[in-house]
């Protein structure tokens, strides 16, 4: 097991009380596996990523849990150890490639800088290695692109460069937070294919954060569905998408216009996400759930196997 997160809870201090952004999250990622984390804004998917990377803001506190990376707890490491992990062991790709790149530094130099740091190579060799890594993300004329500035490249090209940067060390885990959300669908398709290929060739695990269930279906073997800072369902992607158990997962799929009959209204979820400062005692989705029982308001359901024989599909719901 490459990454093993147990009972992780994170809070943010605010003037109106503490925002409980993550509540007892547990999941793991195996070596070479692509795991999708899906949820809407405020579900805690990005906070999970930032916590693993040690990049939480100062007002955040980790109130419980552990994050084991290759058996070592990231949360008890000091700053230097965490820094050594970031980039070298765990690569990152974020939504907006322009913010991840240095705006006034040529692509080749940016890559060389990263490679020098992680692989301890002299500049010239690092620059050559950078050009090689551009070729590996299928940039046709890597020498030419290396001499360009980020603003001279298209969004899709920039994201390829960011992926080349993230994979340069090369890391064992890649955390990708909405890496294709800002891109056109045809470019998205190419970037997804590229990430899949890199993962297959190098055995890199990918934690793929997205709001797009279609992207999950295409990319991920397993999916974790988050809602209001909790994991409500997880399992094999095709299982979860075709036989969703948690009412939230079902509602999320039902709200998509993809398969909807244009003559019928979309199945919108009533109500709003709960206030994360005052979490309900019971199920976090109960107030919006059509099937909620009295028990759902009182007691929080744990993440349990959907069927006794099936140890790969879990849901946190009292209604079965």
């Amino acid at each position: 097991m490459l990454l093993d997160i147990k009972e992780l809870s994170v809070e943010f201090a605010s003037m109106q009380g503490n925002v409980k952004a993550l509540q007892n999250i547990s999941f793991s990622i195996e070596k070479g596996e692509i795991v999708g984390i899906v949820g809407e804004s405020g579900s805690g998917k990005s906070v999970t990523a930032l916590t693993i990377l040690g990049l939480l803001e100062k007002n955040a506190s980790i109130t419980s849990g552990s994050i084991l990376y290759k058996g070592r707890d990231v949360l008890v490491m000091d700053k230097r150890e965490q820094q050594a992990l970031r980039g070298k062991e765990i690569g990152m790709v974020f939504q907006e490639p322009m913010t991840a790149l240095h705006p006034t530094m040529k692509i080749g130099d940016q890559l060389a800088e990263v490679i020098k740091r992680h692989r301890k190579l002299p500049h010239k060799e690092a620059y050559q290695a950078g050009i090689k890594s551009l070729a590996e993300v299928h940039i046709h004329d890597p020498e030419l692109v290396a001499r360009k500035y980020p603003f001279e490249l298209s969004g899709g090209m920039r994201q390829r460069v960011v992926i080349a940067l993230a994979m340069a060390a090369p890391p064992d885990l890649l955390i990708a937070d909405e890496p294709t959300t800002a891109l056109d669908v045809t470019i998205q398709y190419e970037i997804l294919k590229l990430m899949e290929e890199l993962s297959a060739n190098r055995g890199t695990s990918i934690m793929f954060i997205t709001h797009d269930l279609g992207v999950v279906a295409q990319m991920c073997k397993r999916v974790i569905v988050m809602y209001a800072g909790e994991i409500v369902e997880q399992g094999e992607t095709h299982q979860v998408l075709q036989h969703p158990v948690h009412p939230y997962t079902r509602a999320l799929i039902g709200a998509l216009p993809d398969l909807a009959d244009p003559d019928e209204p979309l199945l919108a979820i009533p109500g709003e996400s709960p206030d994360l400062r005052r979490r309900p005692a019971g199920c976090v989705f109960a107030s919006r759930c059509a099937q909620a029982l009295p028990l759902c308001q009182e007691e929080r359901p744990g993440l349990e196997p959907v069927q006794q024989q099936n140890e790969s599909h879990y849901a946190a719901c009292w209604v079965r």
Binding site: V185, D212, L213, A217, Q218, Q242, D258
Partner: peptide
């Protein structure tokens, strides 16, 4: 190119 829920 559109990722679909059911066609992998």
């Amino acid at each position: 190119s559109l990722p679909s829920l059911h066609q992998k």
